[in-house]
Simulated scan of single mutants.
Amino acid sequence: MTGPAPARLMAGLALGCQEPLARRYDVALLDLDGVVYVGPDAVPGVPAALAAARSAGMRLGFVTNNAARTPEEVADHLTELQVPAEPTDVITSSQAAATVVAGLLGAGARVLPIGGPGVAAALAAAGLAVVDSADDRPDAVVQGYGREVGWAQLAEAVVAVRNGARHVATNADASIPSPRGPLPGNGAMVSVVRGVTGQEPLVTGKPDPAMHAECVRRTGARSPLVVGDRLDTDIEGARRAGAASLLVFSGVTDPSTLLAAGPRHRPDLLAADCTGLLHAHPPVTAEGAAWRCGGWTVRSVEGGHGLQLAGPDGDVPAADGESDGLDGLRALCVAHWAAHPDDGAPVRVVGTGRAAADLVASWGLAAPGGS
């Protein structure tokens, strides 16, 4: 690292946001699993944070790759969690898949749904003919997440695809967050059908920009902010839709994965969870050959193959008096991404001093033998 990054890099995470996000952006396009809830329960503090964001003038839309439930069921669940929502506030990947299939094959095409009830409901709502078996010679198979999906449904999908049906996946998320840790997602099940048939599915959910674009259309957003926990769906989807993005760490992404991310998967903002909507976000500034955020400084070491983090015992309070403990990570990301503008790469990180070393270790970034 030899100095400030090119001008094209001085955006997003480096710029931060000088005012609370709920005032800067008019609509939050929120992922659900790992962002608003994990399993059946709300992420602690998130219902109150979203209520406060609404009070500040921000509107909410919900954009989920989980295809298992109908928009009505999702809205009811959100309302039970003290996040009031209407079905029209919810965009599911089943709806996206149904729209794509209807456009490709026409109304009345025969489609075999694999997944939860939300898949079949979306297909029927789009004017498609829902069938129960590969023996019905479907024109397409639409595969979405469902907790009860097992061998029998996967077998029907395989037979239908081998007989010529178009294989459409609502999303390719390999895992979903749960209170017990990551569990198999739709992508894991899709890989079974793909592996047996040898046919690549058409994937219609995030990161395809259609879902975010539909939510923008419904809400009339002029300055939307995508809020998600996945780099390959939420963050890439925001980039492809031309929207700003906020990565939260309440779901599946961890700091080491973020640091190694390639350009398509780099968010504009970071927060522990949706409470980050209520605060300003500090910039990351170049200071000679170093990068600084709050009280934390990052320098290149080991001939450019590693990073050194140094800082105080705890973050310097932000301008609004709040500190989320992520200033060091912000500085690390901007420093590493400036050195790798066109590709992702892992990096060795060493913390200088006890506070920095403890922080680096807690993020899973400590280099072997680092201190």
Rank of each mutant, 00 (worst) to 15 (best):
N163A: 15
N163R: 15
N163F: 00
G164K: 15
G164W: 00
R166V: 14
H167T: 10
A169H: 03
A169P: 04
A169F: 04
T170W: 05
T170L: 00
N171H: 11
N171M: 06
D173T: 07
S175D: 14
S175N: 13
I176S: 00
I176M: 13
P177Y: 01
P177Q: 01
P177E: 03
P179F: 02
P179Q: 03
R180T: 11
G181R: 06
P182C: 00
P182I: 07
P184E: 06
G185N: 04
G185F: 07
N186G: 08
G187C: 04
G187W: 08
G187A: 04
M189L: 15
V190K: 06
V190P: 03
S191T: 04
S191Y: 05
V192A: 12
V192N: 00
V193P: 04
G195E: 12
G195Q: 08
V196D: 08
V196M: 02
V196K: 01
T197K: 03
T197L: 04
T197E: 13
G198F: 07
Q199F: 11
E200H: 08
P201S: 05
L202N: 07
G205C: 03
G205M: 01
K206I: 12
K206C: 06
D208T: 10
D208A: 13
P209L: 03
M211S: 06
M211E: 03
H212V: 11
H212I: 14
A213N: 10
A213K: 11
E214G: 10
V216Y: 14
V216W: 15
V216A: 05
R217H: 13
R218L: 10
R218I: 09
G220S: 09
R222G: 14
S223F: 13
L225W: 15
L225A: 06
V227C: 14
G228E: 03
G228H: 01
D229F: 12
R230L: 13
L231A: 04
L231K: 05
D232N: 13
T233H: 08
D234I: 10
D234A: 09
G237R: 06
A238N: 04
R239H: 15
R239M: 09
R240S: 08
A241F: 14
G242F: 12
G242M: 07
A243K: 01
A243M: 14
A243R: 03
A243Y: 14
A244N: 08
A244P: 13
S245T: 06
S245W: 09
L246D: 04
L246N: 03
F249R: 01
S250V: 12
S250Y: 10
V252G: 01
V252K: 01
T253V: 11
T253Q: 02
D254K: 13
D254C: 09
L258E: 01
L259H: 01
A260Y: 08
A261K: 07
P263N: 09
R264S: 15
